[in-house]
Structures are given as C-alpha cells and as structure tokens.
Computed example of a mutant assay.
Amino acid sequence: MTSFSSPKAAHILSLVQTLRGGGVERTLLRLAGDWVEAGRQVTLLMGMREGPLVAELPDGVRIVELGTSSFPALRALPAIARDVQPDLIFCPGNHYTSIAGFTRLQLGQAAPPIVAKISNALARPDHRFPLAQAYRWWLRRHPRFIDHFVAMSPAMRDEAICAMRADPARLSIIANPAPRLPSGTSPADIPARPLLVGVGRLELQKRWDRLIDAIARIDDASTRLIIVGQGSARPALEAQIARLGLGQRVTLIGYRSNPAPYLAAASAVVLTSDFEGVPGVLREALALGTPVVATESSVAVREIIADPTRGTIVPIGDQMALVAALNYWLGPDVTRPMPVAPAGEDAAKAYLALFDRLVRERRDPVRTRDRRSKRR
C-alpha cells in the first residue's frame, strides 16, 4: 500500500497481543529485528508492552501500543493499516488469524497481501464435538482471507494443504530462525546431572503435569527437573509438586531469555504437550547434542526426532511410555546424540524474498499471470 513504484515489501506490519513470553512472539521479535537490519520498515501493533520479552524488543521497530492486553482490541489492525499503509501484513501464528480475517473483511480489495505463519498443529486432539467440527470449518475458510501461508516444516505444509484445502502454490516452507547457542558462564542454578529440563509456557497445552508425575515414578530418585517458563498454570503445578512431595527435586524457575545453558546441561529435554507446531526447543536441544523425549504432539516431531539416536517419541497420555523413555535417557551408559545442525539460518532472508514476490505479484498481476502461463 506504499507507492506503486516500490519494488519490494519496504514496510511490514505485524501484531502481537503481549510480550509475556511464547515461541510465536519471541520468533516474531527476532525476525522483525533482522528485517530492520535488512533495511525494511517494521511496524508492530501491540496490545500491551508487558512481559519478559520487552527486553528483547529490537531497536528500530515502530510500536503502536493499544494499552490493553484484551485480544479483541487487536481488531484495531485495519485502522492501523489504513494509517501506516504497509506493503504487507504478517500474521505470526494461528492465534492471530481471526484478526487477519477481520482485517481482510474491513479493508477488502484495499488490503495489502496477508501472510500467515502456521505456528501450531492443525490437528487438535484436545478438541471434541462440536468444537472439532467448528475448528475444521474455520481452517477451511483461511484461504479466503490469507494470501500465503508459511509452514515451518514439510510435514506441516502437507497438514495445512489437507486441513485448509489450500492451493499448494500458496504455501512455503521456512523454518524458524536458528537458536542462539550458549555463551559465557552457565547460570548458578543449574544442578548436576541427572537432570531433566522442560522449556515452555506454563499453560494447559504443555501438560507439564505429566512430566511432574513422571518424576515421582522414575527409577533414579536423585534426578532433578527444571521447567523454564511462566504462565497461568503455575499455581496448579506448584500444588502438584507439593502434593507429590517433590519440592526438593522439581523447580519452576520462570522465564529465561536464553534457555540454552539449561538445555546443554540436561540429561534429556522433555516436551509433554497435547499439541505443538514445530517445537523449537527440540531443535535447540539437538543442536547442543542433548537427547529429547517428546509426545507426538505435532506432525513435525517425527521430522525432528528422525532416528532413535536423537531421542524418543511417546504417545500422548501414555505415562508408562513416558517414564520408560526417561529411565532410558537417564541411564549411566546412554550415548548422547551428535549435535544436529539447526534449520533456519536464513529465515529472515527467506521471508523477505517471499514478501517481495507477493508485493510484486499484487502490483503487476498481468505480468505475473503471463509468467505463470509461460511456465506451463
């Protein structure tokens, strides 16, 4: 929506509810910083500037703050788009697609291209009738208001094509930015092995209660568990820890901007979620040579744990399988995996190449159609 002569997505508009923590928001901030460094203008519509990720706000990003953490307040996005005239709108995750749909409805043909990253599983085992049917209906409406989708892995792309009935030409695969590896001295609160580590928001989706319950059942009673993250489930998890008498073995240490030292120190990194997108914590752990144990919470889990030398995949809700997997990786003679090169080294550049192409196609649709016809 900037001047027609602009050859690229010079101005990108995105949105975030709060900065309380979460992989979607953290990844967006990293990408936004890289886009600014690449010479692009980035405007971020934000409900409220609060939470631990405030410290990670990159320089040069223009913030439009609404002053409330209420999700419906983000329906200000169409008005902000009219005001700042972006070349493209980036929807950073599934949580925000309803705002993207509202924006398309409000702006109509005047809307710039809208790109949405698929950040979470589209198959939701936690949904029951009639919510499951309603969710499937909602997913199939997405191609009507999203111009292009970004999946973080090939399996997620295939899932999106099936669940959304989207044109494969409107889906790209771009991994999240590569993790930052630890540097300097390790934090003082990391205990010696045997140590299990979980990283993620303390929310019901993550099902940390399963992991805490498993700690009470594993063979080695000297094993410690650290869970890195903050969220609304903390009181319930603290009550569970007290009830099981695990106060000396399980520690909820809150949010850490760089959890890599904890991942590197762990005997294994554990993820017990009901559903996920492409769990970045698994890739971060494997990049450090730390094995992982994960529920089959996403089609991407089997892509990440590609062979049994990297870790163990357990069925969702199978506590016996979870305990058995933990016992195996806590064993004294287990071999740690070789570090796996992380994906996403050029994520920011890949996004900008996609954004630029979509902007060019929007501004010169005749030439785009001719070029596609020649390819056929």
Rank of each mutant, 00 (worst) to 15 (best):
P332L: 07
A265I: 12
V16K: 09
V359I: 10
G200I: 12
A10V: 09
L88K: 05
G229L: 06
P72T: 05
R140Y: 03
V54L: 05
V16T: 10
R367M: 14
Y262T: 01
V250D: 04
P143N: 01
P130Q: 05
T272W: 09
G229H: 05
A353D: 14
M156I: 15
L286H: 04
I118R: 02
A73P: 09
I218Q: 05
A178C: 03
R371E: 12
S373K: 13
Y328G: 01
T295V: 06
L13Q: 03
A347R: 02
M1F: 11
D209G: 12
Y96V: 06
L196E: 01
E238D: 14
W138F: 15
A192L: 14
Q106N: 03
Q205M: 09
A214R: 04
H127N: 10
A306P: 06
R256C: 00
D126G: 07
L139P: 07
E65S: 12
F71S: 03
L330Y: 13
A151Y: 02
L282T: 12
P168R: 00
L196C: 07
R375E: 14
S119G: 15
I174D: 01
L44H: 09
R201Q: 13
L139I: 13
G311T: 10
R336D: 06
T68P: 02
R336E: 11
A325S: 13
E159K: 14
P291M: 08
V299Q: 00
S273Q: 03
Q319Y: 04
A111S: 11
